[in-house]
């Protein structure tokens, strides 16, 4: 982020903004929490509430997160879950802001049943990003208009970025 204000000055403002954001999010979904270890403001929400929270983040006149600039997943086999990450930015906001806003939203789905609502009705770009995550992790997005593989061949078996993925082509590192 360019032009970020000096740390001391920004700290109070950022904490205040995070608390306000959390309070507003909890009004929509009470189970929302702030993640403590994170390089930016991060809302952890239950998987069922993802569409509601995202809609609010985009439409609230004080927030207007109009860009989903990245969406990806992380595989945590030990905890039997996929963590889904949504990175949001406000780029078209007409109001001048003291700092440019970026917010991360994370949620988790179980590894054995990775189903979640699509957000591509909210940000159309999500259609491609969700296809990529489906391609690599096998997350199933309900109501996605065109959930096909994006990078790999259509007849590819398995989802290569899962930690337990293996195929005949892979080489093991000799020990």
């Amino acid at each position: 982020m360019q032009d970020s204000p000096p740390p001391g000055e920004d700290q109070a403002g950022e904490v205040g903004f995070a608390q306000a954001l959390l309070a507003a999010a909890q009004a929509i979904e009470p189970a929302t929490v702030l993640r403590d270890k994170s390089d930016r403001i991060t809302l952890q929400v239950p998987a069922a509430a993802i569409a509601k929270i995202c809609q609010w983040l985009r439409d609230d006149p004080a927030l207007r997160f109009d860009l989903l600039y990245d969406h990806t997943a992380i595989d945590w086999p030990a905890e039997n879950r996929f963590e889904l990450v949504y990175l949001l930015a406000a780029v078209l906001d007409p109001q001048p802001r003291t700092r440019d806003l970026q917010v991360m939203v994370t949620t988790s789905v179980p590894r054995d049943n990775p189903v979640i609502d699509t957000v591509c009705g909210i940000w159309p770009i999500a259609e491609w990003q969700e296809r990529e995550v489906y391609d690599m992790f096998g997350i199933l997005y309900t109501n996605h208009p065109d959930l096909r593989r994006l990078f790999l061949e259509d007849d590819w078996e398995g989802f290569p970025l899962r930690k337990d993925y293996e195929d005949d082509f892979m080489l093991e590192r000799p020990t």
């Binding site: 790999l152 290569p160 993925y165 195929d167 082509f169 892979m170 080489l171 093991e172 590192r173």
Partner: peptide
């Protein structure tokens, strides 16, 4: 990418 890659041609 020689090891553990599902796609890189060696």
């Amino acid at each position: 990418f020689i090891y553990h890659s599902y796609t890189t041609i060696r």
